[in-house]
Design a protein around this nucleic acid. Structure first.
Lengths: 203, 203
DNA sequence: TGAAAAAGACCGAACGGTCATATTGCGCGC
DNA sequence: GCGCGCAATATGACCGTTCGGTCTTTTTCA
């Protein structure tokens, strides 16, 4: 039987549930109910709930990876345009597909109290996420599109953190305003020249 | 008995515990154990765990409020210096006091699945948090220290979101690097002039 | 004397996880 | 091509623990 094992069904439904409710909040029972399988099946495929968590991070990030490769790696466009296209894409993804939220930010928020295996996985994934963004920024800096001011890696860390913060707030505001704000500020101007300008007054 | 009711002890220890482990993760039993009181006492003071959550948000934000009033409202200093002083202060607070994390970001992250009373409270608190920051930014814009580009409120939303995102990542990285990155980028230059510059190449 | 608080035993439900059993598809000797 | 055996999966009853919350009784203080 098993039109290819029910594992994929558990992963798919579990992904949605964790996305909506958080990892701790989504019980194993809830997940297997959503997948339409008895609870026992869960432990045929996953050693523990934590192992399941690590696996859905892989699945989820696998999908992000293809989006990143497509949009951030497109050498035919200038780096900043690629960055904007990428964030447009994950914005659209958050709007249409996931109901709602970002798996990574959701799990990061619960990192305290979570198993080390999950924390380590998240650290790795965050690095993998940041790298191509930092590469785009570095390329823009080399082209002179961007000030060399904060180095590319620092800037990439900041941007990803800001995105996650916006994602977190969507859970409270229940709309996409935080993501729109992110887009507007990051790609339309920002606090930045702040310090330098205030240091040298209009004379 | 009761050197002024054990409520304050429950609130104090509960605050620390929620800060460290998250709201859902910190059980009522854990909290009363930490406070050294029997579990029954908890429900003499709080109608439910959610009501307790709303109350510790008030207590926590009350402390933030005084810090905000002191540093952001100090009319003797230029607005951008006040902003930087404020973020320096909450950085130091995160480093030294809280062990570790930010109550607001922690609870926002769990907003899905949380009671509406808590979500509403968080929305209110976020607005109250943002307002004086937006006021500082607006003042800086009026003085000409800052481009009028993204309006003050939008900028304030972004900065607060970015701070929360950094706070969230400290839970994964287990160090203060995300907060340092936030400081460096926000107060040292940023992506901002990005779009405008890339649109008009060096000719 | 009465209301508030302290106290701890207690509750049903849900949690993550286990286990014994039934079922299935598949490789392999024939 | 066929039957057999076996490992992987399917299944649901079951386990101990912990969850948020209740109840009753005792203590305290105004």
């Amino acid at each position: 039987m098993a039109r290819l094992s029910k594992k994929s069904e558990i992963v798919e439904q579990g992904l949605q549930l964790v996305l909506q409710q958080g990892f701790a909040q989504a019980g194993v029972q809830d997940i297997t109910d959503a997948a339409g399988v008895p609870k026992g099946s869960f432990y045929n495929h996953f050693a523990s709930k934590d192992a399941f968590g690590a696996e859905i991070v892989d699945v989820y990030f696998g999908r992000m990876r293809t989006m990143m490769a497509d949009l951030l790696g497109d050498a035919t466009r200038p780096p900043l345009a690629r960055l904007e296209a990428y964030f447009d894409a994950i914005f659209a993804y958050a709007r249409d597909k996931s109901g709602q939220g970002c798996m990574i930010s959701t799990l990061c928020a619960e990192a305290n109290g979570a198993a080390d295996v999950l924390r380590d996985k998240l650290n790795g994934v965050l690095g993998e996420w940041r790298a191509p963004i930092a590469a785009c920024i570095a390329e823009a800096q080399k082209r002179g599109d961007l000030a060399p001011a904060p180095d590319a890696d620092t800037l990439a860390r900041f941007v990803v953190d800001a995105w996650q913060g916006a994602m977190i707030r969507t859970k409270v505001s229940r709309d996409l305003e935080p993501l729109e704000t992110f887009q507007r500020v990051v790609f339309g101007g920002v606090l930045v020249p702040l310090k330098r300008r205030s240091v040298r007054p209009p004379t």
